[in-house]
Design a protein around this nucleic acid. Structure first.
Lengths: 137, 137
DNA sequence: CGGGATCCTGCAAGATACTG
DNA sequence: CAGTATCTTGCAGGATCCCG
């Protein structure tokens, strides 16, 4: 359960340098994984290659704007590849690159933790809110 | 490299139900992990129990407001415990709970992926931006 | 079909000041 | 010391229209 020695070392080093939050590769990645749609798009693409409108249908409450933006950033980071078929009307497909495939492993770890821990978190919240309510009364 | 069968099943099921993004445990967790400070606070607390001002010094560019808020949510979710020593002036310490400890494992996985992949991502971005620039000219 | 361009809004989060 | 309260603002992200 303890962190690996390598990680604690990195952490200590980071802290010594004062957690330079600007130029931090971890922050860089976390920000992206944490944003509203990126992880979901990656997961959907992990099932199979999708066309733009397939993705849009598959993720109902994303706007075209946000879908485009998310796909662009993922493409820019090299996590997905984009292929345009010069038909008319045009058809564009998106697929995970090897790099994109590789993120599925840690991502799946987090998802499994989330599912495993969800019940406990909900209970903790109820307890906390109940105590909070009692205090307010 | 492929997703576990369990995950793909869950994904298929999620998609069939239309990705109910409101009541989604995964989304719930991802949103929190992804926000600006949560992961960092967890990591710092993984080193050792910290007092409020220690945390504040340890994470220079967080405001007291955001630190308090982040700690409250983590406490509410049962990931950290808060202990008040009735000295004066008061002293408050924060520590990871067992649940909080358990998230370190998937979190570390993501961090290691980030560090391992960072160079590749940077190269991909440079390539993308260069192509983008060329196209604009 | 697969976007881009624009406009608009809510809310996350910084700054500042106060308190038990 | 460890917070709260209030004010303010940047910008993520939705809605809408347009285009090749």
């Amino acid at each position: 359960m303890a962190l690996s020695a390598a990680l604690t070392d990195r952490l200590a080093e980071l802290q010594n340098r004062g957690f330079d939050t600007q130029d931090c590769p971890v922050r860089d990645v976390m920000d992206r994984v944490g944003d509203k749609w990126t992880a979901l798009v990656i997961l959907v693409l992990s099932i199979k290659t999708h066309r733009f409108s397939e993705l849009h249908r598959g993720i109902p409450d994303i706007s075209k704007r946000m879908l485009t933006q998310t796909l662009r950033e993922l493409e820019r980071d090299g996590l997905i590849t984009r292929h345009v078929y010069p038909t008319k009307p045009p058809s564009v497909s998106y697929a995970l690159s090897p790099l994109g495939q590789s993120v599925l492993v840690p991502l799946e770890g987090l998802i499994e933790w989330a599912q495993k821990s969800h019940a406990g978190i909900r209970r903790a919240r109820e307890r906390y809110d109940a105590a909070d309510l009692a205090k307010a009364a």
